[in-house]
Structure formats: C-alpha cells, structure tokens
Design a protein around this nucleic acid. Structure first.
Lengths: 219, 219
DNA sequence: TGACTATTCCACTAATCTATGGAATAGTGT
DNA sequence: ACACTATTCCATAGATTAGTGGAATAGTCA
C-alpha cells in the first residue's frame, strides 16, 4: 500500500519532468517566463507550427506548468508561478555542471563569454541609482513593454547603432536580455565595445531577475 | 546560427529533464541520494529486474546525473553532486504546488500529515544539543550506516516496539527517514504516539539534510 | 447573417521509449 | 582451467510521443 503510494507519487513527479523533457517546450517556457504570450506569438518565436505549439502548450497545462486566459480571439498563456522559472534554472544548472555536451556547446558559441565580464545582479540597482551605469534592455520592444528592470532603457539590438551617441555620454552600460544564454546581450556588448564604449553584460536575464523577487517596471 | 545554438542548448537541457521523466528513475535517484548503491541493491528496492535497473542507470549516467565506480564484482553508483538532489526537490515542489493529482494523492495516503507537526530542520540541531529532543533514524541499518544526522539513534521501524522504553525516558522524539514523502517516519510517529510518547516528524529526510550542507555522521 | 481569425480537437504515421530474454564480459573463488 | 556472480550489451515487441493535415469551435468584424 505505502509502496503504491510511493510509486504513484514518483509517477506524478515524472509527469512534470517529462513535460520539461523536450527542447521546444523548454523554449516555450523560456518565452513565457517573460510574461503572457498568445499561441501565435509562441509559434512564431519557437518556429513551430501553430497547431503543434498548441499541442505542446496543452501538455504543459496538463502538468500544471502553465495556465491560459482567453481574451477576445486570443488565448494568453502564462507560467503558473515563479517556481517554474526556478525549476528551469535548476535543470539548466545541473546540465551545465554535469553534461559535457553542454560545456562544449557553450564554449563553441560563446567563447567570448568570460571576456564580457558579467555583472552580478545584486550590485546593479545600487550602481544604477548612483548614476554610475546605464541599464540597457536589448530585447524587442514588446518584451520590454511587458516588463523590464526599473530604469532600464530599451534599445533592440537592430537599432543599437542609431543610439550610440546617447549611450556614449552615460558612463558604463550594462546590457541584459532573456537569460544567461540568450545571445542578444552578448552581441550588444560586443558591438558597443567595438565602438569604444564601456559595456558589460548582466549576469542573468529578465526572467531570472523577476523570479528572484526583484522589482519590475511595466509600461 | 545563434538560433541553432539556442535549439541545441535546449535540446541538451531537455535530455536531463527527460532522464527524470520516469518514476522508476526518480525512485532510483532517491535511493542514490542516500549514498552509493550497487545495481543489485537498487533493483531490489525499486522492484525492477536487475537488467532493467542497469539500463535505467545507463540513461542516468549518459546525462551526467550519476557516476559509477567498480569494486570487485560490484558496480557502485552515486549521484554526481548534491545539486541533483536539489533538482529533484525542485521537481517535487513544483509538482506539489501545481499538480492537483499530487495533492489528491498526498491527502489520500497521508491524511494525518498535519497532525504530526513536522519540525523545521533549522531548529533541530540546537534543541538536540540541549537534550530537549532525541533524534530517531527509522531507516534500515545499512542506510543509517552510510550516513545519518549527528547524534541520531537508529531504530528501524520493525524494531521500534522493542526499544520503546529507551525512548520513553528521553523527552520528545523527532523521527526522520528518506524524505518528506517516505512513510517510515510517519508510521513511527504514529506508533510512538499510540504508546503515549511525545513524537514528531522532521520536515525533511536525510538526503535533503545532506544536500543542505548540514553535518553528517558515518559509522 | 456570412466571411474570417485564432485556437483546439481528432486521426494517423514516424520516431522514440520501456521491459524482457538471450548472450557477452569481467571479476572471484576453487 | 572451471564454475559462478554481477553487470552490461543487444535485439525485439508493445507502448508512448512528436509532428502533420483536416475538421470543429468560438469569437470578431462588416
């Protein structure tokens, strides 16, 4: 009897893990970590067909990782809680530490990583308040509108070149994007440095910031 | 290119999650969280065939969650790090908070849960030092030998009745076992209370204790 | 009302995962 | 060398999962 309890319980836990056991679903979750999104948006960013996306979202909903809300024609999905982001960070962390393939991948694509001197999250707010740094959000403007770090300036990567002058006069720039492996901030920092500005990357992205209970600003 | 990086990376993370996406493997990991075990032991406790157990262990090894060490005829498996325990706690926590089925299960089997007043981990050591409580490890003696809370007394559940008198004179008893859902400690507390002793359950089990970096004693 | 959009449901094929039995490997004891 | 044990490797049948197209549903707009 208690043996069955245990088996049943682990089977339930396994359902949650299984829902995470697919790269596409993880990607969807990462986008949802930034705020509500409808099926169409999610399909676009993940490169899946809408129907397929919908099915994956059903699965995530069945294990309680996301919920949805209908408004007009659209159905908006969102994470059921910040603990889901934490869980994903956990998976990511274990993978990075114990899975050799991940290390290879990261080394291959982000060889410059160390050179970009990521700034720890906790130092940021204080230094921003003192005016020592400008916080730069390089995500697309819709994502920025849905929520961003307090006081952050939004300049999507594509428009970075047009705003170089504004940034040049404002001390050091700290860029962030969707998460520690999102390439947007890396790219931004490289370009800014290429133009002679002082630029660094924030260690984590917006979802991690939010999940840590730090203050968030919306439009 | 950077799109591929992202896809590849998530695919790797998904491998880890997928490895956790099976109740049997989660159960194996839970046992391994207590220390090294060989294939035979693991097969016995999980109720799987040895061959099947071996295959599951291969899968866990392939994603870096466990390693093995050969000694004589036996191959001993162990977790690759405490972060694996943390990851499992994370999965469990999310499942408990967001998956209705888990709540039903827990309520069905452990209706008495609240009545047993679990004691928070942080209070325990201090109160044990003052002699206010006796820490009771109700796991089988091999598991106790492999590691236990400092100062804990080991009385496997089956032998509890024979040692009632010793416990009766030692103030309040705090029992723990393999984890928050292991039924051993629940059972023990119920029996002790049935005999008129003051008994409570420790909130977590040995693996969580160890993963939290608390001191551990071995034979 | 009818045309249209966003999303879901259903059915089906290809790919993947699980458990099992037989055979291979490696180490122990005689 | 031989018998024996613990573990792994391999092949296979049945179950499960992923992606696709077609049809259904629900809400919007004119």
């Amino acid at each position: 009897m208690s043996g069955n309890f245990k088996k049943d319980l682990f089977a339930q836990f396994a359902r949650v893990a299984k829902a995470l056991g697919n790269g596409h679903r993880l990607e969807l979750l990462e986008f949802l970590a930034q705020g509500e999104r409808n099926v169409d948006d999610l399909a676009r960013v993940s490169g899946l067909s809408v129907r397929n996306t919908s099915q994956h979202l059903q699965q995530l909903r069945q294990v309680g990782l996301v919920t949805s809300r209908k408004e007009g024609l659209h159905v908006y999905y969102r994470l059921t809680g910040d603990d889901v982001v934490l869980l994903m960070q956990c998976v990511r962390g274990v993978a990075e530490r114990h899975l050799a393939d991940v290390k290879v991948l990261v080394d291959t694509y982000l060889t410059v990583k160390d050179a970009l001197e990521p700034m720890p999250v906790k130092d940021l707010l204080e230094r921003a308040r003192k005016g020592e740094v400008t916080v730069l959000d390089v995500r697309p403007s819709e994502e920025y509108a849905a929520g961003h770090l307090p006081g952050a300036v939004n300049i999507p990567l594509a428009e970075l070149e047009r705003h170089l002058d504004e940034l040049r006069d404002s001390g050091e720039v700290v860029a962030y994007c969707r998460g520690p492996h999102c390439v947007l901030a890396f790219e931004a920092v490289e370009r800014l440095r290429g133009q002679g500005l002082r630029a660094r990357r924030l260690q984590d992205g917006f979802p991690e910031w939010k999940a840590a209970g730090m203050p968030v600003e919306t439009e």
